[in-house]
Design a protein around this nucleic acid. Sequence first.
DNA 1: ACGCGTCGTGCAAACGTATTCATCGAAGCC
DNA 2: GGCTTCGATGAATACGTTTGCACGACGCGT
Lengths: 371, 371
Amino acid sequence: MVVTLRDVARAAGVSPATASRALSAPDLVAPARREHVQQVARELGYRPNRAARELITGRTGNLCLVVPDLENPFFAAVAKGVQARARALGFALLVADAEEDPRLESELVGHLGAQVDGVILCSPRMTDAELDRLGRDVLDDDVPLLLVNRLHGGLPSVVIDNTDGIRQAVTHLYALGHRRIGYAGGPVGSWSDAQRRRGLEHASHGLRSIDVVDLGHFPPLFGGGVAAGDLVAASGVTAVLAHNDLLALGILSRLRARGVRVPEDVSVVGYDDIPAATLVSPTLTTVTVPLARLGRAAVDLLIEAGSVPTAAESAIAAGLAAAERAQHGTPAITVGSIGATPPPASVLIGVELVVRASTGVAPAQSSVAGG
Amino acid sequence: MVVTLRDVARAAGVSPATASRALSAPDLVAPARREHVQQVARELGYRPNRAARELITGRTGNLCLVVPDLENPFFAAVAKGVQARARALGFALLVADAEEDPRLESELVGHLGAQVDGVILCSPRMTDAELDRLGRDVLDDDVPLLLVNRLHGGLPSVVIDNTDGIRQAVTHLYALGHRRIGYAGGPVGSWSDAQRRRGLEHASHGLRSIDVVDLGHFPPLFGGGVAAGDLVAASGVTAVLAHNDLLALGILSRLRARGVRVPEDVSVVGYDDIPAATLVSPTLTTVTVPLARLGRAAVDLLIEAGSVPTAAESAIAAGLAAAERAQHGTPAITVGSIGATPPPASVLIGVELVVRASTGVAPAQSSVAGG
DNA sequence: ACGCGTCGTGCAAACGTATTCATCGAAGCC
DNA sequence: GGCTTCGATGAATACGTTTGCACGACGCGT
């Protein structure tokens, strides 16, 4: 019923070994014979059995992506980028949604890690200890683990330049005359939130008479922003930085509902530049993150960290990486890794503030927010 | 290095055959021995090699989902539902983004179909002929193919009740006094768009002195809605039905930009109820589709169509399906299949109009839209 | 002309599991 | 108590591919 390599070999009058080589290591077989075998294989409609190949090579041809929430536009964009690059390199992509539960994330990495050549993990809130355990115990040594938007130990990772993004946002607000700025943070334990807080402190340190108000931690969702909106109004700030766009959109919505005008009374800045940022009114000033590029970079770095790719795959990879570099200039800065092995470093994704309608000059009097 | 079934068998003092049975067909081995083997396996940290198992059983334990665009909130929601149910049934999920290209969709189904136990395909625009070819030639006979939001031949599918959704929307607008209603359609060739047009015709047929204006076909994205917005303004309609929410949001945005008030001058209705529908102002009246449930139903139906699941899997599946039924009442109506085999029927997902702020009573004079 | 290196090819052994078949012992039946 | 039947177990095979090793042929150098 199904045509196997033996069938091809028999039909082509060669041994299975030669047939195998003709198809997956073409330079090892004489040109004439090689083409003949390939022709026969095509005619018979031969399709290699991946399980058999995997059994002996140990490589699955699959990668795996674990995200907290597929419906979150941030992760959807990352997933899209990852998927595209994985496919271009000949990999299929297993996607898992962890439903915002760090415990489930570990479990998924454990289950899926056994059947892939590499794992890309977006896990803002997993503890460092658990992360260690994943890399050490649950994952086989030859399946690399890459972190998105998080730095940890010697693990390769692709991180957003949070410090610079925050700096750009603060500078922008400062230039508009804002001196009392609120920060609506992400969830407790979020790595990128911690980094952004640090960036915020650092950025504000260099500015004269600026005041940063910590509004607390919120779920990085629209609903979280609604809650945050009330604190914004009560805090007397003239501008607020949100941990991400969904949060910012919630704040926007709540402020509007309470009659606080944006940007006349309060300016709002988001982070990520998700599509919805331009759908609302006023359109959202935010820090744009090239998420598709982030996804692509993640795959490239993962493959690099995994090494030992198929000859064909590596050729393709090298070609595409070169093309990417040519096309986008130097999109990412490679940061030296902390650990021992030099190649699996980390990549820093540059960001850019995009000013839209949700930020404006600070109101003359700071007595806007009555409470 | 890695612990294999032989190792477990040796450590437990049994043959590999018994070890295999103790782990994957527990009722075939004596209770005492069974538990001993399981205990040993646990202690050694045994993890079965999926490739070896797949090679002999022919089952991969993977399902595959192909969507036109992962970043589109509609498909993201479907993907989330599919992923959740697949995981609950012990399947991993391969996700592929076809970048809105029907040709790529075929190719992906071909590539991924070889390494999964079933394929869920969201392909609004693939031709019927191509769909036939997929089911007949490129997919193995034992790999079931399920269609989302599309009916075709004897293929199992999960479809949204487009007719009823459109009917509800039209009835709503009619009740508000609208008599001249525009329809901003989806892409040419979209199956669901064709069905919605038919539903529109049918619904309007029963209403006195109603006038339906076809505004044409648009990309089902925000950008498409911007273009559609101008036609809405020029057409003299007092209400417009959009093929989906993204389109509706684009229309909303364009109308606002042109100074047309919503809903005072023109009412707008979307379809799908994506999260962004509540983020904009005015919030969007739309037809809400339980997309997560749709995704779950798709997996259940696919498994059913594939039959021959593992004993354990089928037990779990039955249990969960029952639980779902108990929890949600009877969420879906089973439609008799057209073909011969009764079980792989199709499921119709009910929808519900949710009225928000983008629809209101029709303006007294229909001379609103000047041009 | 001889040996050496290289290239192309085939044989056969893996890879780790599920499963058929045969065997063996015990329990049930008359 | 001998025979049958059934349940539990082990030996062996198969799944389809890759790959180490050996072997022959050929071309080249001295």
